[in-house]
Nucleic acid binder design. Sequence first.
DNA 1: TAGAACGTTTAGTAACTACTAAACGTAGTA
DNA 2: TACTACGTTTAGTAGTTACTAAACGTTCTA
Lengths: 176, 176
Amino acid sequence: MATNLSQLKQDFTEGLSQISRFWGFPKGMGAIFAVLYLSPTPIPLDEIVSQTGLTKGAVSTEVRTLARMGLVHRSSKLGDRKDYYEAESDFYKSIRSILKERQNSEFDRAIRSVKETLEKLESGSVSGVEAEVAFVHQRVKALQEFFDAIDSLSNAVIKLEKLGLTNVKSILNILK
Amino acid sequence: MATNLSQLKQDFTEGLSQISRFWGFPKGMGAIFAVLYLSPTPIPLDEIVSQTGLTKGAVSTEVRTLARMGLVHRSSKLGDRKDYYEAESDFYKSIRSILKERQNSEFDRAIRSVKETLEKLESGSVSGVEAEVAFVHQRVKALQEFFDAIDSLSNAVIKLEKLGLTNVKSILNILK
DNA sequence: TAGAACGTTTAGTAACTACTAAACGTAGTA
DNA sequence: TACTACGTTTAGTAGTTACTAAACGTTCTA
């Protein structure tokens, strides 16, 4: 029944690794974040290496992408050559920056291409059997509207930053 | 300036392929869905093959997972041995079934493991330096609450089925 | 200046994924 | 019965990804 702390940390890390992989990120990223998230103090790269079992190189690159996503922060101490890392504990902040990051991604380019398709249809410059063009128009428009809704939703999440968790919950209750 | 319909369909298909890949699905899945989504009538597997350039085998397996996600529907005509496929055009319905599908997935198992970690901490059965255990407890708890919020959000989305798109938009406007 | 302690970059690898080609199973048709 | 028109399954492959090992560059120290 009793568990020691390091075993518990290990389980937790394993869990986050799987979650990370599920979202399409390397499982190593999840492990790194878990180690940092459970550490009360910023820790150097070396220790991430020893606690995750990854190599320096892997940790070096993956910790950088974590930093770009705003999930971890890099800092350094005066008179100490090491870099220190700590986890961002405000997840809403992290989500915001992840979504921002996403703005310039392939995803948005693809979504924009749907928009362009729609614009061509609206301009009436598409040739073809009229009924079929009309059908395609209607469908593409519906998809575009759906994307817009998703976009509004993500923007809404971004703006939730100042509301705390409990407020979010009560908003969600309104929807019920 | 003028575009013909089949070119437009092709562009659209290309766009959905990329979106599909972005979300971690095979790009072929996006292509298949696009073809079905733009077709006014259900179409047989053969035609999906010819319109996407994939092989029968690939289409066969991928169309099945699309069906499992509720994004396409399979039907058949009396006196016709072929199966016919059509796209689900109500995206909220699709999202609902995708989220449901997710319930039993690896993702949920991983999330549950975080919950178990938390329960161990709450039960006081974890041995270790007291301050450190307390810190880990606080962190794991915060993560758990975050997951709960995400869960509420996805449940809320599920429940939005009966509200139309415009209603969703106005709710989102409240959040601004 | 040499050496040590860092983080970064690069080249290579093992595992995985999305496919293709083709064999296979099945049910209707002559 | 053999033949045909389907969808499915299987074996193999090209491409990708998440890593490892090790060379490298840089900055501080003796």
